[in-house]
Amino acid sequence: MMHTQDFHRLLIERNTFFCFSGPLSETALSAISDAVKNRVFEASDKRSLATKIFAVFIEQAQNIIRYSAESIAADDENESMGIGTVAISASQTGFVIEAVNPIRPGIIPKLERNLIQLKAMSGDELKVAYTERLKSGPPEGSKGAGLGFIQMARKCDRFNFEFAKEDEGSTLFIFKVEIDK
């Protein structure tokens, strides 16, 4: 296990000012969202920047709750819970909001196609994709509006994703969103 001191240094060195790792539910998100919001508003001098960072954080957290391949039973059986990590860090150009969660292999090809498409779109094309999705309603298999990735793509300056194979055979979905100052 990494020494506590090294773990502390690691977070400081990468300028990670918020990190949550473990089982995430809507109840847990309610408990941490105010702290995140306050921290984000302190860290960014413009309101529109803070709103964007917070918006991306919420979409990332809700994706973990809804789509993580790993979960543990929640106290309330109606509540979904997913295991993952979400972090916010300062970077040279602005802010980075990262999310990691185990993903079911079956949904990877479709998600990958979808994200490659979004990555290639201009701001105007993303706006069209967003309003089209509003009109057509949630796609099959979506537990939200199917708008989360489009919204994140619109609010950020760049994003990257990766499907990383773990030694024991599972796959991690990594989604990294950057917002410039």
């Binding site: 709103t51 009109k135 939200g144 708008l147």
Partner: peptide, 12 residues
């Protein structure tokens, strides 16, 4: 002041 993507569908 802020709404998430699930709420966008409700607003629409």
């Amino acid at each position: 002041l802020y709404f998430n993507s699930s709420s966008a569908m409700f607003l629409f």
